[in-house]
Design a protein around this nucleic acid. Structure first.
Lengths: 226, 226
DNA sequence: GTATATATTAAGCAATTATTAACGTTGGAA
DNA sequence: TTCCAACGTTAATAATTGCTTAATATATAC
C-alpha cells in the first residue's frame, strides 16, 4: 500500500470542490477544501499537504498571490502547487510558472484523470527523502538495510529497535525523554506504555554493548559516541 | 519536571466533563471545565489555557462559533483549539479546520490516550523555546545532553543538580535565595526543606570545584565565572 | 564569645530504571 | 492453511540511583 497523499483544494465554486473532493477521496487521497483563498496558506501550514490545488481566479485573493506566498515559505516551498484554470485562461500559464507553480489543470475537470495526474506530480516533485546512513565512531547505521555495523561486525535489528536507535543516534549527546521517543518512533496516535521504551533499550544494549546508550535518570536516554 | 499544562474543556454533558477532568488531572494537567459555550471565550481569556477542548454541538453556541472567536482574538489565536465530535459528525472536520482548529478528537473518548494526545498537540503547535546551552568561561552547560564541560572534561549530573546549576549559571553573578531555587527547580507546590538546597550545592561543588559557586550568607548562592 | 547560618556526612526512603518472563500478534515457510 | 519463529508489549520483580532529612561540624557576623 502506498502512502496516503494529502491534498489541499481551494476554489470558490462549492460544486467543483465537492466533485474534486469526492473523486479524490474515492482514489484514496486525504482531501481538505476551502473556498477562501485567504485561508489557503494557513491551512496548508497546518495540514502540510502533499500538494495544493488552487483556482486561479478567486474573489478574495487570487491564486498567484497565494502561490507566491507558498513558494516563499520555508516550510511550504517544496509543496507542489497546481493551478486550476478555466480553458480561456491559458494565457495565465506563463505567469504561474514564473511564480513556481508545478503544473496546470484545466477546467472542466475530468475526474478519472485527476487523481492519476496529481499522483504523478507528487511523485515527480517530492523528493522522497531517504534518510541518510549515520557514521558515528565505530558505528555505521544503515537505514536502507536496517543494519548496524560495529566496526566490521554486522548487527541486525527489528524495526522498532532500529528506529529507536536511529533516533537517538541522529542527535548524539542529546537526551531524549521516553515521551520524545514514543512520539517519534511510535507516532502521536499510538499509545504504548513508557516502560516499553526501557525494554527496547535493553535489547539494543544487549546487541551493541552497554556503553553507548546512557541513562539520565529522570530525563531519558542518549546516545554517546564511544 | 515538565511544565504543567492548563486545559479548558467545554461540553454540555456533565458526565463527559467529569470523566475528562478526572483523567486529565490524574495525568498532571490543570483542568477548567464549563458546560456553557457562551462562557468559553471569557474563561479562556481569564485562565489562558494551553489548549481548548470544545464540543462541536452545544446548545447555546456551537463549537464553530467559539472557535472562530478564539482564532480571531489576538490573545488566544495561538491557543490550540481541539474539537470533540461524535463519531457521526466527521463531516464537520473540514469546516473546523477551515476555522483554524488544530485537531479533532472523537467521542467516545479513550481516557488513556487523551492526555498523551493533547500533550502531543500542545507541543506541536506551541513553539516552546528550547533552552540554549550556556558557555561561561571554562564551562559549557549543555542542556540537551544534561552534561557540563569544564574545559574538555565532561561532568554528568543527575536531574536536580543539573537544573540547579543551570538556574544559577543562567544569571551569573546574581544571587538566588534558596526559596528562588526551590520554586524554580522543584516547582511551586513541592515542599522541601531549604537545607536540601545546601546538599545539592555541595554535590555540585564536589564535581565542578569549590570556586564557582559563592555563598552569600543570609541571602543565597551565586554562580561566578572562574 | 555567642548566635546564627552554612558545610558536610551518612543513612533511610522514594522513585526510577533494569531485567526477566510471559503473552498475544504477525508474517513467513512448509 | 497451519505451524513456527520473531516481534512488540505488558507486567512483575529486582536493582540501582538520587533525594531528602537529620545530625554534627565548621564558619561567619555581630
Amino acid at each position: 500500500m502506498s502512502k496516503k497523499y494529502k491534498i489541499l483544494v481551494a476554489d470558490d465554486d462549492s460544486d467543483i470542490l465537492e466533485i474534486i473532493k469526492f473523486n479524490l477521496e474515492r482514489n484514496d487521497f486525504e482531501v481538505t477544501v476551502t473556498n477562501k483563498s485567504t485561508e489557503t496558506y494557513e491551512l496548508a501550514l497546518k495540514i502540510r499537504p502533499d500538494l495544493i490545488l488552487h483556482d486561479v481566479m478567486m474573489p478574495d485573493m487570487d491564486g498567484f498571490q497565494v502561490c507566491r506566498k507558498v513558494k516563499s515559505s520555508d516550510i511550504l516551498r517544496d509543496t507542489p502547487f497546481v493551478f486550476l484554470t478555466a480553458r480561456n485562461e491559458e494565457h495565465h500559464e506563463v505567469q504561474g510558472f514564473e511564480l513556481g507553480a508545478e503544473d496546470y489543470i484545466a477546467k472542466p475537470i475530468k475526474p478519472a484523470a485527476l487523481s492519476t495526474r496529481l499522483k504523478a506530480i507528487i511523485r515527480r516533485y517530492t523528493k522522497e527523502e531517504k534518510l541518510p546512513s549515520l557514521q558515528l565512531g565505530i558505528f555505521r547505521i544503515d537505514r536502507e538495510g536496517y543494519v548496524v555495523y560495529k566496526n566490521e561486525e554486522q548487527i541486525s535489528f527489528p524495526k522498532k529497535e532500529f528506529e529507536l536507535l536511529y533516533i537517538l543516534a541522529s542527535s548524539p549527546g542529546k537526551v531524549f525523554s521516553r515521551e520524545d521517543v514514543l512520539s517519534r518512533v511510535w507516532g502521536n496516535d499510538v499509545y504504548v506504555g513508557e516502560r516499553t521504551v526501557d525494554v527496547h533499550i535493553r535489547k539494543i544494549r544487549e546487541k551493541i554493548g552497554d556503553d553507548y546508550i546512557t541513562t539520565i535518570k529522570g530525563v531519558g536516554y542518549k546516545f554517546v559516541i564511544g
